[in-house]
Computed example of a mutant assay.
Amino acid sequence: MARTVASHTTGGLEKPDNVAPRLYGRAPDRILSAMHPGAAHRQSYDPSGASTAAVVEVLMVHELDADAPHVLIPRAEVEIVVRFGPAARRGIDAHVLGAREHVRRKVPRGTQRSLSARLRLGASEAVLGVPASAVAGRVVALEDVWGDAAARRLLERLAATPDGLAAAKVLDAAIAERVATDACRPCSRLALEAAEKLRNNLFVPANVNAVADELGVSERHLRRVFRGAFGVGPKAFAKLARFQRALRAAREDERAAWATIAADAGYYDQAHLIAEFHAIAGAPPRVLLGELRVAASIG
């Protein structure tokens, strides 16, 4: 059974697939409801002039029915995830998800709500106090990076909220407070420029040396700085960017030819695309698309 879900974006409204927008509540809050077969919705909350817009890419609330599959798409961006329900310690907990390079699947126990704030590339240290490389490939309890007192204060505020939108506002406010009060070293401009080029330019394959040459540094130096900033190397980052472009294109038009998708996403050919889907998702493209059609929540 499908229910309504919510997602909050800072700097633009994220529109889930095949859903007409609906406006809820009062301005300046904007909500977008979405339904996925198999029990999910997401809404978007975009507070006007949000103080977290520079560090939070999107904030989402997922309502998960019991035994509904959850597919988490890999990303280089770090996320803060809060869980409400029987799967969480004492009914609510919070963790940091570092950069991950492979699809993860799970089936939550019982009905569960989760709240996730996806940080912008390079924002980890400003929000968490640690670089993205410190949490890459790991799931870390929020108290281990924020400290017991700050994490406990957030969880107490979240536990008192009546719904997902209210919880999103609480988490957004807590992140804004961290950014306003914590001094930290800014993310490497070199790493951010390289990420922008690898994400938007179709180097086939990820030609890290070409990007390094364009930026006037050695490939070795770029790899070191990039991994230190984001927790993944530039080649792995470009591989994830290709994967996400292809997956987005396939979900937007399921009649599109895979050879066309492969070329547009930056793969050598369709065989290259299929091989990388196997490596990242453990399944061929059509199988993964089938999973996503019935998934309760998509990262």
Rank of each mutant, 00 (worst) to 15 (best):
R3L: 12
L13C: 10
L13H: 10
P16T: 04
D29W: 10
M35L: 15
Q43G: 13
Y45H: 13
D46C: 12
A50L: 03
S51C: 05
T52I: 07
E57K: 14
M60V: 15
V61H: 15
E63T: 13
E63S: 07
A66S: 13
V71K: 00
R83A: 01
H95M: 09
G98A: 04
K106C: 03
Q112C: 05
Q112M: 15
L115Y: 00
L115T: 00
A117S: 10
R120W: 08
G122Y: 09
V127K: 02
V127H: 07
S133N: 04
L142G: 10
A149C: 02
A151G: 02
R157C: 09
L158T: 10
A168N: 05
L171N: 06
L171R: 00
A176R: 00
A183C: 02
A194Q: 04
L198C: 07
N201I: 14
V204P: 01
P205V: 07
A210P: 02
R223Q: 12
R227K: 13
G228W: 08
A229R: 03
F230V: 02
G233D: 14
A241E: 15
F243Q: 06
R245E: 12
A246C: 07
L247C: 08
A250D: 03
R251I: 03
E252D: 12
A259P: 01
T260C: 06
T260V: 14
D264P: 05
Y268T: 10
A271C: 01
L273S: 03
F277I: 08
G282C: 03
P285E: 11
L292A: 04
R293T: 08
G299W: 00
G299V: 00
